[in-house]
């Protein structure tokens, strides 16, 4: 098992993809957090935010990774599985260790350090740019508040868990293009619409269902994201959010083990 995990970690760090995506994510998170930080503090009335609560504002800005940036760790997790199939490195991998269950477990364990890197970089980029632009907009970055750092830490955990959800997606959708299209369509389009639609169309019941969508679970885990600012009380607690994300990762991976990974491979 140790060898299998070591192989999966080596796969991440021996091509350029991991740092290309990481740099993209850092840039995107810095841009979004900076933009939000400045808009919330310089023109709060336009942003629809209650600027009298600098803590809520700061947390919403610093948690932008879990609100909008989670697609990056999800992609790198997906690629860990689909890339193996696409480039047929699954062949030497399974020749070295034929257990497919062990392979999927190793992919999750191997994705953890990568996910942690994405979580740290994504969260810290948001804090760095967000704090600077909040200050520039005349607000308080609240960097001395433990609650802010709690959100940063939880946001890091959420992004790490999103890598595991990505591994699950990749094990179900073995075609790399299909998996990435599905991932982008779901996270950028389907889920945001479903979250609003369920709440708007079905009221409280819909909102309770929407809270179990993976993006909502990630928001819940980070505590104090922009969503919870806009519709308070609509999210799960942080640990429930973590369990829901883990649940998605587990269910998708088991489904992948019973479909893609039961077939002839390579």
């Amino acid at each position: 098992m140790r060898r299998a995990v070591r192989l999966e970690v080596a796969k991440f760090f021996s091509t350029r993809m991991w740092w290309v995506l990481l740099v993209l994510m850092a840039g995107y998170m810095a841009f979004l957090a900076g933009g939000m930080g400045f808009a919330f503090t310089a023109t709060p009335q336009d942003a629809g935010i209650d600027a009298s609560d600098p803590l809520a504002t700061a947390r919403a800005v610093y948690a932008v990774g879990t609100t909008l940036g989670y697609v990056f760790p999800a992609i790198i997790g997906t690629l860990a599985v689909t890339g193996d199939l696409r480039h047929r490195t699954i062949v030497p991998t399974l020749l070295a260790d034929p257990s497919r269950t062990r392979l999927l477990v190793a992919k999750h364990l191997g994705a953890l350090p990568v996910g942690l890197a994405y979580g740290l970089v994504g969260s810290l980029a948001a804090v760095g740019a967000g704090a600077a632009l909040i200050a520039l907009g005349g607000g308080d970055p609240m960097l001395d508040s433990p609650d802010v750092w709690r959100t940063v830490a939880l946001s890091t955990v959420a992004l790490t868990l999103w890598t595991l959800v990505g591994v699950g997606v990749g094990s179900v959708l073995s075609n790399q293009v299909a998996a990435l299209v599905a991932l982008l369509a779901f996270t950028q389009f389907v889920e945001p619409i479903a979250r609003m639609g369920l709440t708007a169309g079905l009221g409280d019941a819909g909102g309770r269902v929407a809270a179990f969508l993976p993006g909502a679970a990630g928001d819940a885990l980070a505590e104090g994201s922009i969503y919870s600012l806009m519709s308070p009380g609509s999210l799960l607690t942080w640990w429930q959010g973590a369990l829901v994300l883990l649940g998605y990762a587990a269910v998708l991976t088991v489904a992948g083990r019973l479909t893609t990974f039961r077939r002839d491979l390579g």
Binding site: K11, S14, T15, R16, M17, R88, I90, V91
Partner: peptide, 14 residues
């Protein structure tokens, strides 16, 4: 059965 972005040495070391 190789990733095109990896060198031969990196592949073997992996």
């Amino acid at each position: 059965t190789f990733h095109p972005g990896r060198s031969a040495r990196a592949h073997l070391q992996m």
